[in-house]
């Protein structure tokens, strides 16, 4: 446990004890084809279609996540989808949410149990208490991005960043965050990376990625695990930023794309 992740060991017992609600955020078909026994299905796609916090709360409740439930979320995409769902739950005021430290594939490859059995227990009701401090809107980002003490993190791959990014943003590709079969590296390693980059422990950090805040959602939790808790997610990310014709920066005078293979 690093504060934001839950160890795979003990999950099965916790599900049996009903002390956690395990949430599978993959596509519904993938869930139906096999999942961690006892997990509820809350696909990211459905959650992204929800337009209001109330709709998110309803989906959470239907998945058996009530106000006081400890939710443990997993996906099969290096933790990025799980992170985005976890963040949405926090955003509507849920306080007890963790990411499973490994992906569904990792879980299955380790020989742990999988099956098609659904969750025990009925749906819950989830209240709404929006936490605006977790979200960065485009306007908010634009108002603080040049401020001392604010760091904007771009979690897309390096080539995308070089091509264009939000002015002043720092490139930290999502692949730097995980490794060795874990969705997040140990907090000490993540902390060292951020220290090297000169990201102060008390900085306000805004993360963004390409479109819906998944890669940057993972970064949001990486920051929290490394003790950088003053973080916000720019959930609509670079796709919206471009759509709004906000300013961008580019790495000029170099044909970096021609250096990539494949």
């Amino acid at each position: 446990m690093s504060g934001v992740t839950a160890a795979a060991d003990g999950i099965e017992q916790a599900v049996r004890d009903n002390s956690i609600r395990l949430v599978d955020v993959r596509h519904a078909e993938q869930y139906e084809g096999g999942h961690i026994p006892g997990a509820a299905s809350l696909p990211l796609g459905g959650l992204l279609e929800a337009e209001t916090p109330e709709q998110i709360a309803r989906l959470a409740g239907e998945a058996g996540v009530g106000d006081g439930t400890r939710a443990v979320i997993y996906d099969d995409a290096f933790g990025a989808l799980a992170s985005r769902v976890a963040w949405a739950l926090e955003y509507i005021g849920h306080r007890d949410v963790l990411l499973l430290e490994e992906t569904y594939s990792g879980w299955a490859a380790a020989g742990r149990s999988t099956g098609t059995g659904g969750p025990r227990g009925a749906s819950e009701r989830h209240s709404v208490s929006v936490q605006p401090g977790l979200l960065a809107t485009a306007d908010y980002l634009e108002s603080v991005m040049h401020r001392d003490g604010t760091v904007v993190l771009d979690n897309r791959e390096r080539l995308n960043y070089l091509e264009h990014h939000i002015p002043g943003a720092v490139s930290l590709p999502y692949v730097t965050l995980g490794g060795e079969g874990r969705i997040l590296r140990p907090p000490g390693e993540l902390g060292r990376l951020l220290d090297n980059r000169g990201v102060p422990a008390d900085a306000e950090i805004i993360t963004y990625c390409g479109s819906v805040g998944t890669l940057s959602g993972l970064a949001y939790y990486a920051l929290k695990s490394a003790g950088r808790s003053n973080a916000r997610l720019y959930a609509k990310s670079f796709k919206e930023w471009r759509g709004l014709s906000k300013p961008v920066e580019t790495q000029a005078d170099a044909n970096y794309w021609d250096l990539s293979a494949g």
Binding site: E157, R158, L162, V175, N196, Y256, L259, G262
Partner: peptide, 29 residues
């Protein structure tokens, strides 16, 4: 190369492998 460069590596003519576009602060990593 995925973590700190551009997802590709480059073999040089002198039996080096080069990772380009690495953030200076990440070189130690």
């Amino acid at each position: 190369s995925e973590q700190y460069s551009i997802g590709s590596a480059h073999f040089s003519t002198r039996e080096n492998v080069q990772l380009h576009w690495v953030v200076l602060e990440d070189v130690s990593e």
